[in-house]
Amino acid sequence: MKKLVLTGAAGRLGSYLREPLTKMCDELVSTDMVADIGKTLPGETYVQADLGDLSALEAILAGADMVVHFGAIGDEAEWDAILHSNIIGAYNVWEAAYRQGVRRVVYASSVHAVGMHLKTDVIGLDAPHKPDTYYGLAKCFCEDLASLYWDKRGVESVCMRIFSCAQANNARALGTWLSYGDLIHLVERSIDTPVVGFTKVYGISNNDRVVVDNSKAAHLGYRPKDNAEVFAKEILAKTPPLDNKDLANLCIGGPFATVELGNSGVAGLGVVDDRKKI
């Protein structure tokens, strides 16, 4: 491809995508709200932009083949903040993509669009939306937005429902872990699959204790290789018995299932900020 755009390039997950994406195109345009992203890679340029600015996004997406959209608040937050970054910002991405003739949006959706479903249900991709927070509700909106823009305007989308893409350091992660290597593989397959239309896929590794069924996304060719079971002995040795009546343990959204609306869910996950240094 000639040009790819990556939103959210300054974020933790974005930091792992920048280098692989430069290998898939002649020009990678990375964008985020920070003034300076630091060192750029060969073939990469950086543009500071607010997702709330449609005209800025139109300029950035001009001539792009696809946009990999990871820019958003990555946690539960107050409604006004979620509305601006995660809902209006996403609308602007799809609308700018349509106006500029961009073929496909590869979108960082989330487990939290279906976070109130039980782990023991092992839901498929046809399970109804069941958000656990404003953050999850925004992901539901964006998935429906992606579906609408495919049906009415011909913009393809892959909505990757990302699970626990961080260091596996808690019992929940044994079933929900997504390694950085598998994240990169998923994004690559979402880009290089010839035709996707509107596709949903669970962003989760090949865990023995996997909590969802990804079979209806087989056409993407996403075949995760990593397995959180390698961490099981160490994690379970330090984990006391879990309360089997606590929704944070029962639901696939984990602590997002029990936090008050507007309050951080990530705070209960012990996420390590191990973003990749360029």
Rank of each mutant, 00 (worst) to 15 (best):
G181W: 03
I235E: 11
R153G: 02
L148R: 14
E143R: 07
V212N: 05
S215A: 15
T193Q: 11
N206G: 08
Q167E: 14
S190N: 10
Y222C: 12
E229G: 07
V195F: 12
D213P: 10
C165G: 02
E156T: 09
D208T: 14
D208Y: 12
W177Y: 13
W177L: 00
R209S: 14
A218Y: 01
P224N: 11
S190G: 15
E156L: 09
A166F: 10
D226N: 13
N170C: 01
C159M: 10
N169Q: 07
V196K: 08
C142R: 05
L242Y: 00
R209C: 08
N169M: 04
V155E: 09
D208A: 13
V201H: 10
Q167D: 09
D144E: 14
L148A: 13
L247K: 05
R161V: 02
L242E: 13
V196R: 05
A237Q: 11
F163S: 10
F141P: 01
K233G: 05
L174E: 00
R189Q: 14
Y180T: 09
F198I: 02
S147E: 12
K238P: 02
H185K: 13
D246G: 02
V158M: 04
A171W: 03
D226R: 05
P241I: 10
I184F: 07
S205A: 06
F163Y: 12
L178G: 06
S205C: 05
L247P: 05
L186V: 06
G154C: 03
N214C: 04
Y222H: 13
E229S: 15
V158E: 03
R172Y: 04
P241L: 10
A218C: 06
H219A: 12
L174W: 00
S147I: 01
I162T: 01
N227T: 11
E234S: 12
I204R: 05
L247D: 08
R153K: 15
S205H: 08
C165E: 04
R172T: 02
R209E: 15
P224K: 08
D182I: 02
E234N: 03
Y180I: 11
S164P: 00
K152R: 15
K225I: 11
V187L: 09
Y202V: 05
A228E: 11
V230Q: 14
A217T: 07
T199K: 12
N214A: 09
R172V: 03
D213E: 09
E188G: 06
D213V: 11
V212P: 09
W177K: 06
A248G: 15
K245E: 13
P194I: 12
G181I: 00
